[in-house]
């Protein structure tokens, strides 16, 4: 048992180290600035728009929605890419060769990608509060809601990223099998405009995935109660939000370890060597 605890502790340290290294990397800093800047530009150009017939500014509606979309997108695509890449470059194999190494590796991934959300939230939230009015209507209670929505949202979506990363045949395929579906789901999830604008069956589809519910939860944290009138059923549906996200989280907890084990079983040195050769061809 103590070896497992050691491994989980090392995994936490690993996630933290990766997070610090990522903060210091110009590439990742650029990514955060790009996403933050892009979001703010979008909000700035729409600062005078209002949702039709509601008196709610588009900024107030969009900001929590965009945060939700970035959460769901980042936490699915991020781990999918890292896992696919680290399967190919030998990181995973190194851990497979260690006692309890896979436990440490997975812990590290969870910690790293969860922490990675913080700078993302900061680069969007801090300038938004400086630039726009009426963004957070609920004060401390609202922040509490943000906290549980983020936590539950992470649990619901992180496993999806791990599963995609384990199943895709190669890193290049993450774009097809990971990013595209997530972009589609995000687009129909009421992020940039209320979901009622879409056909009925698309609304139904959107409500199957966690992205919609994270968005709804975030809006319920930032917007006043009157704004619930824009939502489906004229309600924040907090109970349903918790249920759907929890269902995804439980499904993830059940499925992910199996998928990861299956993937780890197939790892070998010759597979890593084959990936290296394939990458050399790809670059050439």
């Amino acid at each position: 048992m103590s070896a497992t605890r050691t491994a989980v502790g090392l995994g936490v340290r690993r996630g933290w180290t990766e997070f610090l290294l990522s903060l210091r990397s110009p590439q990742d800093q650029g990514f955060y600035l790009f996403v933050g800047g892009g979001t703010l530009l979008y909000l700035w150009f729409n600062r005078d728009e209002q949702l039709e017939g509601t008196g709610i500014s588009l900024v107030a509606y969009s900001l929590p929605s965009v945060l939700a979309a970035l959460l769901a997108f980042g936490v699915v695509v991020g781990p999918a890419f890292s896992l696919a890449m680290e399967r190919e470059d030998g990181t995973l194999l190194r851990h497979k060769a260690l006692p309890h190494g896979m436990q440490g590796y997975v812990t590290g991934q969870l910690v790293y990608h969860s922490l990675g959300l913080l700078p993302m939230l900061l680069v969007i939230l801090v300038p938004s509060f400086l630039l726009f009015d009426g963004v957070m209507e609920r004060g401390a209670e609202g922040w509490l809601t943000v906290a549980w929505v983020v936590a539950l949202g992470l649990l619901a979506t992180l496993p999806l990223g791990m599963v995609i990363g384990s199943l895709v045949p190669s890193t290049q395929k993450v774009t097809t099998w990971g990013m595209l579906p997530v972009i589609v789901v995000t687009a129909i999830s009421g992020i940039f405009f209320p979901v009622q604008a879409l056909w009925g069956w698309v609304q139904g589809l959107a409500q199957v995935f966690p992205t919609y519910w994270i968005g709804l939860g975030m809006r319920s944290a930032f917007l006043p109660d009157a704004a619930a009138a824009v939502e489906l059923g004229d309600s924040w549906r907090t109970g349903t939000t918790v249920l759907v996200l929890a269902a995804w989280a439980v499904a993830g907890l059940l499925v992910t370890p199996r998928v990861l084990r299956r993937m780890a079983r197939r790892q070998s040195g010759s597979q890593v060597a084959a990936a290296r050769d394939a990458a050399a061809q790809w670059v050439r």
């Binding site: 470059d89 030998g90 194999l93 190194r94 040195g269 890593v272």
Partner: peptide, 9 residues
């Protein structure tokens, strides 16, 4: 193991 680009940072 023969790795090639892991843990670059």
């Amino acid at each position: 193991l023969q790795s090639w680009r892991d843990h670059a940072r």
